[in-house]
């Protein structure tokens, strides 16, 4: 496998990551959302492995495996169980209508392309062009957290943001040091557990996971 083919495949994977990010943005069904998240993790993990191969950085294989186990298997499984236990309605409610969200998402992609243009000029890495996609994924994750009401979808948005950051690290500097990555992975895992506990609490307090209901916590005015 030569360099240009690898770069080509990597670009394609970046495109798929972007596609799954948009898919999550517009997906209405909870299970569909989790599946898309798992797919995104998979693409990310393959892409990391390819970058590791191209750059000859073997610790990237480890983070690729870590991504695979954590984001493709473990976290989706936890979320699955959570949804099942809490009997959450499967339809995801959105705050903003879907076509408008898509348009905002497209705007974010263009914006991140514009932002990363200087880096692209300076960098010499094979993966430099995917930086824009990575940044866009982060922003779309945040957008997802803004436009959705449901606590679980917000978590997925958060995790998607983390995916974007991870992708950015891989594409901008061929990955963070292994120690940092392990730490982040651990953080994610712990965050997931904490979220799980919080969900139970929110659920028992409000009988729903609609975060709009949290407005009730405000002192009445």
């Amino acid at each position: 496998m030569n360099l240009s083919v690898a770069a080509n495949i990597n670009s394609f994977l970046a495109a798929l990551v972007l596609l799954t990010a948009f898919g999550m943005l517009v997906q209405r069904r909870m299970y569909g959302l989790i599946h898309l998240f798992a797919w995104q993790g998979l693409f990310l993990s393959v892409s990391t492995a390819i970058v590791g191969f191209v750059a000859g950085k073997h610790h990237l294989y480890i983070s690729s495996l870590l991504t695979l186990s954590l984001k493709v298997v473990l976290l989706p499984y936890i979320l699955h169980v959570l949804i099942h236990r809490l009997r959450i309605q499967k339809e995801v409610e959105t705050v903003v209508n879907v076509p408008l969200t898509m348009l905002i998402g497209i705007g974010l992609v263009i914006f991140s392309y514009h932002l990363t243009a200087p880096v692209r000029e300076l960098s010499t890495l094979v993966t430099r062009s995917t930086l824009a996609v990575a940044l866009a994924t982060v922003m779309i994750g945040l957008l997802m957290m803004i436009t959705r009401r449901h606590a679980v979808t917000q978590i997925i948005g958060f995790l998607a943001m983390e995916n974007g950051l991870f992708f950015a690290a891989t594409s901008a500097t061929y990955g963070m040091p292994l120690v940092v990555e392990l730490g982040v992975a651990l953080d994610i895992l712990i965050a997931a557990f904490i979220f799980g506990i919080f969900f139970f609490h929110i659920h028992t307090t409000f009988d729903s996971l609609d975060v709009e209901k949290m407005a009730r916590l405000k002192e009445s005015d």
């Binding site: 495109a15 076509p99 898509m102």
Partner: peptide
């Protein structure tokens, strides 16, 4: 609107990825 919006989204992503990735 969502169905055709997705079509538009996909086509636009194609355009964007041409400029960004290719």
């Amino acid at each position: 609107t969502e169905f055709l919006g997705s079509a538009f989204l996909l086509a636009t992503l194609g355009m964007l990825s041409y400029f960004i990735l290719e």
